[in-house]
């Protein structure tokens, strides 16, 4: 078990009042599993990732984290434009005080493996949106986390880039054998990428359904081409109440 939420609730406070973001949330992510959480926009999806990452503590309930570190990937690539691609990839190493020659070498090798070799010395501004997001993923992987938390990492991209990057990220995460928790509002993205889809209600978020997705041999492209895609899509759509 890599990550387990048991009856988790979280309430956040502002001067104008308090809001229940999630309420009685129970689900789990197994080792090596790719889990997608979908829900209507503003249902507290990002809160779930912040809870999973330990940036905030649940108001009630329990979160169990298996071994290994967590890596966070955000909606925008958040690359530091004053650093080269390589320096961006080293950022988590510097922050986590793991900036050893060995770790740096690993990070560079990872970047080379996934086609960033020619871009290492370039500035992020010289890269396309898709390439930037790939750099963001390699940066997340550089500190060798066991579990990746993905917060709508494709939402800032245009549709065509998005499809390509979506497949790209999936392949890299699978071949690096990482556990992943993705939150998104995009139903087709969730089906294409994940082994399990967790459907949430509107705020305060509760789990309204869990679906194991096992058709199409685990490739996003094959999934989208599969005849079962539309049927699963319809089921999820109804559960979301759209």
């Amino acid at each position: 078990m890599s990550l387990k939420f048991t009856d988790v609730s979280y309430t956040y406070h502002t001067v104008s009042g308090e809001t229940d973001a999630v309420s009685g949330l129970t689900f789990s992510v197994d080792e090596g599993q790719f889990v997608a959480v979908i829900g209507p926009s503003g249902c507290g999806k990002s809160t779930i990732l912040s809870l999973a990452a330990g940036l905030i503590s649940p108001t009630r309930g329990r979160i169990e984290r298996g071994g290994g570190q967590f890596g966070y990937m955000l909606q925008t690539d958040a690359l530091f434009e004053w650093r080269t691609v390589e320096q961006n990839i080293f950022l988590p190493l510097e922050i986590k005080k793991k900036n050893t020659p060995e770790m740096r070498k690993n990070a560079v090798e990872l970047a080379k493996k996934y086609g960033l070799e020619d871009f290492l010395k370039k500035s992020p501004a010289q890269l396309s949106g898709g390439m930037r997001q790939r750099v963001a993923l390699i940066r997340t992987l550089a500190a060798q986390p066991q579990t990746l938390l993905l917060d709508e990492p494709f939402s800032a991209l245009d549709y065509q880039t998005r499809l390509a990057v979506c497949d790209d990220v999936h392949d890299i995460i699978k071949s690096e054998k990482k556990t992943a928790l993705l939150v998104t509002h995009d139903i087709s993205e969730a089906i294409a990428l994940s082994d399990k889809v967790v459907v949430l209600s509107a705020r305060p978020a509760r789990v309204v359904g869990e679906h194991i997705i096992d058709f199409g041999g685990g490739s996003p492209k094959k999934r989208r081409e599969s005849s079962r895609f539309a049927a699963v899509f319809e089921v999820l759509r109804q559960e979301l109440g759209i």
Partner: peptide, 24 residues
Amino acid sequence: TKQLLLRSMGANKFAMLVKLVMPA
């Protein structure tokens, strides 16, 4: 977003200042 990114990496305030806020 960049601040959130650094926080998720476990950065303290000083690291946030030196790595992000000052250069940015």
